[in-house]
Design a protein around this nucleic acid. Structure first.
Length: 204
DNA sequence: CGTGAGCGA
């Protein structure tokens, strides 16, 4: 009846069915790659990251670990079809987000082989294929030196930065590690989970 | 506070 229908039928008829194998499923599947990315600016939200990645195509999976206050830990993972992932690795590192460039590389962890909570977090082996071809540019490495109000107070009995040390799992602690654990300060405002982003306090 | 490798939908 309609020209559209006849066109559709003819279009299907034009497909050489012999070109498909007997067990071929007529659905094209896409391989995906998992990307580890780092150097996320501290104040960047997931929404900003997704907007940043949106031009490259659909992101299949996306996760950025947070600390106990909800702040980004500075890195994340995403999964996308090969072409999109390749484009991100090749191009996204050249674009600044919040005054900083991130770097994207193929994850050394196979898809679905991530860590579970409480599992030992070791450093990546250098022979694990993580090619560090990226070159961090000194001139755009975030000249945030003026915003350093985050050094709120310093324990005079100890010198150092262990107040930024990540909380470790309490399993099997070595004797030498314990004394460097962060001292809890009950009057510290950072314990207030209602204000998770300390960058909001950086304004003068 | 900058090479950092999660884990919720």
């Amino acid at each position: 009846m309609s020209a559209l229908l006849s066109f559709t039928k003819s279009a299907f008829a034009a497909i050489p069915r012999r070109s498909f194998g007997p067990n071929t499923i007529a659905i094209r599947t896409y391989a995906t790659k998992k990307i580890f990315f780092g150097n996320i600016p501290w104040k960047t939200t997931d929404e900003e990251l997704k907007e940043f990645l949106e031009p490259y195509g659909e992101i299949k999976d996306f996760y950025t670990p947070k600390d106990q206050y909800g702040n980004t830990r500075g890195f994340g993972f995403l999964e996308a079809e090969d072409e999109i992932a390749d484009a991100i690795i090749k191009d996204a590192s050249e674009v600044e987000l919040n005054g900083r460039r991130m770097h994207f590389e193929i994850s050394t962890r196979p898809a679905g082989a991530g860590r579970s909570r409480g599992e030992f977090r070791g450093r990546r082996d250098d022979n694990e294929g993580g090619d560090r071809q990226f070159r961090r540019r000194r001139d755009d490495s975030g000249n945030d030196q003026g915003d350093r109000q985050f050094r709120r107070r310093r324990d005079d009995s100890e010198g150092g930065d262990r107040q930024f040390r990540r909380r470790r799992d309490d399993f099997n602690n070595n004797d030498g590690d314990r004394q460097f654990r962060r001292r809890r300060d009950d009057n510290d405002e950072s314990r207030d989970l209602a204000r998770p982003r300390r960058d909001e306090n950086d304004r003068e």
